[in-house]
């Protein structure tokens, strides 16, 4: 025991305060710390970045176009000039895969932006205004929800015809439903809280309350749903392209590449292998990131 002369004099106030505030982490820091320790999610992020670099910057370094064919070099086995080989028309599969990934990423992220917009507006209005309108809007959602998205997507694509714009339109028209549900649920719980009442007493309008107060507070679940919607959209596009309803030649997507590779499968399996591997890696990394975000942003799920 080590006792000094001033050991028994009163402890200064500021020191006391310092002891009691030894640690305080904000929600964002906490979430990031948690995400960073999730090796699967961090690995997914790394793979996603690699795939993005590969598909966005890659084509600038490739001497081959995704659409130009060379009938002298059909069905080449992978070599140094064509690392992924060539297809039945002599097109370079590497550049086709890069372009296809571009389209898949574009559709994945682009359609989520559309879903986000529709979902937030629909869910926000439904949850905030409540009452009979909310009831009606929820019935509509229930009806849409009771039939699988894929069935709608196929029907609409049959109606609108294949093509990239129509994929955007159709995915945008269908996939907002989960987002609207989440936003509505969030708004419903937040609406009853006191800071919203305070804002209303201070004379804030509906729009201002929605966008300034309610949305920032429900940002966690919105991020989680968006992150998990991206792979869904990519899957749907690939599915559509696979059955011939999606991207049309000469454009390529990962789905149409897999479908194309399947045609030649018994003899030239690499035409299938590389696009299929890319799509699997892409989905894998996006799912890991989505799960990681969910664990990090939703403290209730932690253990």
């Amino acid at each position: 025991m080590n006792i000094r002369a001033d050991s028994f004099s009163p402890l200064p106030k500021d020191l006391k305060k310092a002891i009691s505030e030894r640690s305080a982490t904000t929600f964002g820091q906490d979430a990031w710390q948690h995400f960073r320790k999730n090796y699967l999610a961090m690995g997914g992020l790394a793979v996603l970045v690699l795939i993005m670099v590969f598909s966005i910057i890659g084509p600038f370094f490739s001497q081959f176009d995704y659409a130009s064919n060379d009938l002298m070099k059909t069905n080449l086995f992978p070599d140094w000039i064509h690392p992924f080989g060539t297809d039945e028309l002599g097109r370079d599969i590497l550049s086709r895969t890069m372009y296809g990934t571009r389209i898949s990423l574009l559709i994945g992220f682009g359609s989520v932006v559309i879903n986000l917009t529709i979902g937030i507006i629909y869910g926000g209005i439904s949850g905030y205004l409540g009452g009979r309108l909310d009831n009606l809007m929820q019935r509509i959602i229930d009806i849409i929800f009771s039939i699988p998205d894929l069935l709608y997507v196929i029907l609409l694509m049959v109606t609108f015809g294949a093509g990239i714009q129509n994929i955007f339109i159709v995915l945008g028209l269908i996939n907002w439903v989960p987002m609207a549900r989440i936003v509505r649920g969030q708004v419903l719980t937040l609406r009853e809280q006191e800071f919203i009442l305070a804002a209303r007493i201070l004379g804030a309008g509906t729009g201002k309350i929605l966008f300034r107060h309610l949305l920032p507070n429900s940002i966690g679940p919105i991020i989680i749903v968006s992150a998990l919607q991206i792979p869904t959209a990519i899957f749907m596009e690939a599915f559509l392209s696979f059955i011939g309803l999606g991207i049309q030649a000469p454009l390529v997507s990962l789905g149409s590449l897999v479908a194309n590779g399947r045609m030649n499968i018994p003899s030239y399996s690499y035409a299938l292998f590389f696009p299929a591997l890319t799509i699997a890696l892409l989905m894998l990394s996006l799912n890991f990131i989505g799960d990681g975000l969910r664990d990090a942003l939703d403290p209730k799920l932690r253990r």
Binding site: I3, R4, D6, S7, F8, S9, P10, L11, L15, K16, K17, I19, S20, R22, S23
Partner: peptide
């Protein structure tokens, strides 16, 4: 998670002394 080097109650104690910390 961050135990105090001294008495845990020192931060809230109206009688806290230097040694308590």
């Amino acid at each position: 998670l961050h135990p105090a080097p001294g008495c845990e109650f020192a931060a809230r104690c109206p009688f806290a002394m230097n040694i308590c910390n």
